[in-house]
Computed example of a mutant assay.
Amino acid sequence: MTVLRHWNSLRDIQELQNRVFNALGTGSGGQCESRAVAEWVPVVDILEDEKEYLIKAELPGVTRENVQVTVEKGRLAIKGERPFEKEEDGRKYHRVERSSGTFLRSFNLPENADAEKVEAEFKDGVLFVHLPKQEKAKPREIEVKVN
């Protein structure tokens, strides 16, 4: 069976970026240990308010068990897999437009994000990653002593 692959311009850009990083000997820019190219990339929205940053990733057809969120060295990574549905007896695919396979999205954390308090929740096919902001250090006056 021929598998149709959904065209994704972002994937083409990522492939080019990985080739450039590999040619320069820097690997894949620290984004992914694997050299495999993702079949699809979930779309995200990133919002900010006075208390936190919020990343919303659309992951339709992905189960909570197939999603992993990690924070390491100032980067947040969302990775997982949406498996390809197998053909059932007596049924054949005539068109395949929904992408499947592994995915990886990674983001640099803002300086004021508290990496120790990151929380994630999964609801109705959407992953919500909460990045609380650290409280700003308040300036304090230092008393100058005279000897």
Rank of each mutant, 00 (worst) to 15 (best):
M1P: 00
M1W: 09
H6Q: 12
H6A: 13
S9D: 07
S9P: 12
I13S: 04
I13Q: 06
Q14H: 05
Q14G: 10
L16W: 09
Q17C: 09
N18I: 03
R19K: 15
R19Q: 15
V20P: 03
G25S: 08
T26Q: 14
T26P: 07
G30T: 06
C32L: 08
S34Q: 04
A38K: 02
E39T: 03
V41R: 05
D45Y: 05
L47V: 03
L47S: 06
E48P: 01
D49L: 10
E50Q: 10
E52F: 00
L54P: 06
K56P: 11
K56R: 07
E58Q: 05
E58Y: 02
L59M: 03
L59A: 00
P60R: 01
G61I: 13
T63F: 09
E65Q: 12
N66G: 05
N66F: 09
N66V: 00
N66Y: 11
V69A: 07
T70K: 14
E72G: 00
K73G: 04
K73F: 08
G74W: 04
R75T: 04
R75L: 06
A77I: 04
K79P: 05
G80Q: 02
G80I: 02
G80A: 07
G80Y: 01
G80S: 08
R82W: 13
P83E: 08
P83F: 08
E85W: 01
E87N: 13
E87M: 14
E87G: 11
E88M: 12
G90P: 09
H94K: 03
E97C: 04
R98G: 13
S99T: 10
S100Y: 10
S100D: 13
T102D: 13
L104T: 08
R105L: 08
S106Y: 02
F107W: 07
N108F: 08
N108E: 11
E111W: 10
D114V: 01
A115N: 07
K117Y: 03
K123F: 11
K123Q: 15
D124L: 05
D124S: 10
D124N: 14
G125A: 04
G125I: 04
G125K: 00
V126C: 05
L127W: 02
L127Y: 06
H130G: 00
L131S: 03
P132K: 00
K133N: 03
K133G: 03
K136S: 01
A137D: 05
P139V: 08
P139W: 04
E141K: 14
I142N: 09
I142F: 10
E143H: 00
V144K: 11
K145T: 11
N147Y: 05
